[in-house]
């Protein structure tokens, strides 16, 4: 059976919220692997990095694999030295900016969902450089994922729950929304535990802002697609942390994966937790990412 992973926390949660969150995920959730670390803004890391070792130990004691995630964008020298020290210390690293590969000294790595692996040629190059697990980019359709998985000698992971990362910038939109600059941002992103809603002028929500990152408004929800993806040899499904009952969400995904209940029942239970935020799954069916499709040919 495919495994469930817990993606890195994308939002600027407080140290205390992170500690509580991981304690519960370690003790109560059916995830097999957790990604720790900061992927969006390196300015956030000092707020919680002292806890990471203890959090990692607790997860490992509970039998979970721990992977350290690195930022989507590496630019400053300070970021380079910070990431270099993470790469040296951690057993397994998730790369989200290709530049990070140069800091690994040949160590094995996980290629994160923010790395463009659209085809088997790139897949082979990354495996040659040491990738042991490759995340499909969020834009890929089910047939494209199946093609990659069929040509892959390594594990393939798919982003299966949560707001979908759509873009990364050097500009901080959270700061901009308060007429601040990134250098003096006052960490206003911390006020929105699941990101800041962006609506169309007609009032309909469309996107979510999380500092320099832009995400979908809806939650990607692939319960209907788990069986097909599992049959295509997708080995891991990623659940992205939100300020929701993530233990329950992981339990629902696990139950649908092992057949305890069907996707429809899982969706009904998930709806109770995630409403009023809508579900989306368009990319997987070759449609606009923001769409939600329930009638599709298998």
């Amino acid at each position: 059976m495919s495994k469930l992973t817990l993606g890195p926390v994308q939002f600027h949660w407080s140290a205390a919220q992170r500690r509580d969150f991981y304690a519960r995920m370690a003790d109560e959730s059916p995830i097999s692997c957790a990604y720790l670390g900061e992927v969006v803004c390196s300015k956030r890391l000092p707020w919680f990095e002292n806890d990471l070792t203890l959090i990692a130990e607790r997860l490992q004691r509970a039998g979970k694999q721990v992977v350290f995630s690195t930022p989507a964008l590496i630019t400053t020298d300070r970021e380079v030295s910070m990431i270099a020290s993470i790469c040296q210390a951690a057993e397994l690293i998730e790369v989200n900016d290709l530049a990070c590969i140069s800091l690994l000294n040949g160590k094995e790595f996980v290629s994160g969902p923010l790395v463009n692996v659209f085809n088997e040629g790139t897949l082979d190059v990354l495996i040659g450089m040491g990738a042991v697990r490759i995340n499909a980019p969020i834009e890929l359709s089910a047939p494209a994922i199946a093609t990659l998985a069929s040509k892959s000698r390594v594990e393939i992971e798919v982003f299966a729950f949560g707001r979908q990362p759509l873009a990364i910038s050097q500009r901080c939109y959270h700061a901009r929304s308060r007429d601040l600059h990134k250098d003096n941002c006052q960490f206003v992103c911390g006020e929105d535990v699941d990101g800041m809603e962006v609506a169309q002028l007609n009032g309909r929500p469309i996107l979510t802002i999380n500092g320099t990152q832009t995400l979908s408004y809806g939650h990607v929800t692939l319960l209907n697609e788990l069986a097909e993806l599992q049959a295509s040899e997708v080995t891991h499904f990623r659940l992205s942390p939100h300020a929701l009952d993530m233990v329950e969400i992981a339990t629902i995904y696990h139950a649908v994966l092992d057949g305890t209940f069907d996707a429809e029942e899982g969706l009904a239970k998930l709806q109770e937790i995630a409403a009023p935020i809508p579900f989306i799954n368009g990319y997987l069916h070759g449609h606009a990412g923001m769409e939600w499709l329930t009638n599709f040919a298998n």
Partner: peptide, 21 residues
């Protein structure tokens, strides 16, 4: 553009078609 190029999916999120693919 204001996003990091090659890694922006806003267009395909809304239309199904993106600069990357």
């Amino acid at each position: 553009g204001t996003m990091v190029e090659g890694r922006c999916f806003l267009s395909s999120y809304m239309t199904g078609r993106s600069p990357s693919s």
